[in-house]
Design a protein around this nucleic acid. Sequence first.
DNA 1: CTAATAATTGCACTATTTTGCGGGATATCT
DNA 2: AGATATCCCGCAAAATAGTGCAATTATTAG
Lengths: 249, 249
Amino acid sequence: MLKVERQNAILQEIRTHNKVHSSKLSQLLNVSEDTIRRDLRELAGNGHIKKVHGGAMANPNSPESFRKQKISQQAEREIIAEKAASLFQSGQVILMEGESTNLLLVDYIPDDMTLTIFTNSLRLATKLFNYQNIETVLLGGKISHKYPMTLGIDVINALGEIHADLFFTEIDSIHEDIGITDGDRENAYTKKAMFRSSSQVIAMCLSNEIGTIQPFKVESVSQIHMIITEESPDHHQLNRFSNKGVQIL
Amino acid sequence: MLKVERQNAILQEIRTHNKVHSSKLSQLLNVSEDTIRRDLRELAGNGHIKKVHGGAMANPNSPESFRKQKISQQAEREIIAEKAASLFQSGQVILMEGESTNLLLVDYIPDDMTLTIFTNSLRLATKLFNYQNIETVLLGGKISHKYPMTLGIDVINALGEIHADLFFTEIDSIHEDIGITDGDRENAYTKKAMFRSSSQVIAMCLSNEIGTIQPFKVESVSQIHMIITEESPDHHQLNRFSNKGVQIL
DNA sequence: CTAATAATTGCACTATTTTGCGGGATATCT
DNA sequence: AGATATCCCGCAAAATAGTGCAATTATTAG
């Protein structure tokens, strides 16, 4: 990897996360922390970023102002994304659904990790296009008018042809008795089909969504293998799920 | 191998990957790294590329940058797009391939026109997401590492399930005897499959691409129903195609 | 056609850049 | 203050770049 390439990657990282840790970058880009620090010093010298203890932040006075990506509760989602990324292993086949946390998640994938990622999200697929070691497969189908993703019967058919090791789903509502629910009927159907196309299901959700219910049922809690929230695993709201045999991360 | 030939190969490499390593190029082109470095220095001197330690990268501020070259031909593409848009009729099923002219083309679609558009282009699909009266269907499959689009066997399978009224294809090379050719093997296969999934095929190409040939055959001229260029239909270069029964717009 | 001239290329050698590491300084947190 | 993490400095190894030169090839002049 060229030095400029690496520095561009750092800038890109700051653009999406607003901040970077030297240690994380070191892992992500497979170079020593010293090299990262030297890069940060250089970039800061050009006025691109602001160097801080432990890493760097977006420079508010930068000539090229970074357009901030509007992801709600980004800080919490970052925590979830980082936990989720620890589950990846080279060679795995991953199924991903959702465009908030998953979009952050891919930044935590090390450069040298080889993965196959199936998704129905246009944004995710577009982002993954730049990752040379990741084979991205887009599940074809009709594009929803609500979200930039494919939904419906075509996607469900396509899912019948594949089987993933891990399925990362972003869920908006989960209830210990009712299970996972969704506000969109087609989305619920599609998610349900995704459950059947993976060995393991990892549900990512914000803690304030625990206990909520929406009109359309996706699956019951027993079908989930792991829940990831921004809280620590021993958070009191999570007991009722761990009691049902669901792993908490 | 001629020097210019080699330098063109380097430019091509940068065009597709946005970067090159001197060491890789040396292996690829079977010359010493010194020669590569000299080439890079020369190309950088002309402002074509930006030389960096370890290789070179695409020059964003280049006078004749590749991206800008696309843009510089945007005027011609606009003319083609406007002509092409006149073919649309409400209720039609359209198949679209390509991300330059087609991206401009959708802007010429009237707001009240109802269409179904099949495409394998991520950019096009993302743009069409905002058009409420257009039902967009993305042909699923593996995402190319060269272009943000799905290619290959999955797309070809998906094409087997559909049939469109019109197929708008952007072609890079057309020759009266050899037919339509493409520089990418998978792309050529996929285009070929698209020909079979539409009643009418409309080929859009810039006039300076007429008569050129690339390694991989897509289809012969007889399979095209219409050619659209930025020139007027009675342009001398187009006679040889109209003589073969192809409509010119 | 031949000889002179110019351009191109690879090689040996040296210079520069980049990188990781150890050691000590500095900052952060409790 | 003590523990830990982070940072900075200098060094050495490795990678990459520049330079001069000789051999080869292409081009041009006569």
